[in-house]
Design a protein around this nucleic acid. Sequence first.
DNA 1: TGCGTAGTTGCAGAATTCTTCAAGTCGGTT
DNA 2: AACCGACTTGAAGAATTCTGCAACTACGCA
Lengths: 109, 109
Amino acid sequence: MSVPLYQAKAEMFRTLGHPVRIRVLELLQAGPRPVRDLLAEIDVEPSNLSQQLALLRRAGIVVSFRQGGLVMYALSTPAVADLLAAGRRILGEVLTDRDGLLAELKARD
Amino acid sequence: MSVPLYQAKAEMFRTLGHPVRIRVLELLQAGPRPVRDLLAEIDVEPSNLSQQLALLRRAGIVVSFRQGGLVMYALSTPAVADLLAAGRRILGEVLTDRDGLLAELKARD
DNA sequence: TGCGTAGTTGCAGAATTCTTCAAGTCGGTT
DNA sequence: AACCGACTTGAAGAATTCTGCAACTACGCA
């Protein structure tokens, strides 16, 4: 194989590793949306958003199509939502673990 | 809150976005392992591995402890394995989609 | 106490990614 | 055809991340 599997995985995760791209994916979980809507909700320059969307597109995570003068984006597979959910869960566990540790440390002095 | 949630998420995904770190996590899915084992399986300089482990540790994704002269690492929560599984599934879907498209394109000429 | 193995940390140059600006494309509309 | 709105692309400097070397810490043991 040309690209080791673990490298493809790393690339995929890295593709998700950007605040704007995460927000886009979260918004797209509710269904397809035009760029203009994303732009209205994300506070980023149009050209920057386009760059981020292009990255997600190239990674195959989202797809785009035109609809009545607007360009729409959508998740390429609902599995993306599962990935985000798993991420959310870990984040929750890690943060509560930290809080737990913090509380433990505080109780000591 | 000081750090927006979507930024914390992005950071977590970015932390996973590196070939060495992915391999470490995959190895740790089978249970705790000493650094020396990871080193034997991953083909990376010791100092580099240490840097990557430090990143994972700071992100709260793994934990480390000492055991009989060796430093052991383990996943901080089994949820990490779920995240990797979700990633694997998406990668599979994206790749077969691409193959499908590729086949379609080839059938055309 | 002194040594050797096991890992870690600091750092600097190399490589990658981000952001923004300017210019360009693609479809509708008039 | 000319124009406009909605995006996209190219490119370059700024910012971040990666890698490897050298130095350092932590243990266990003679």
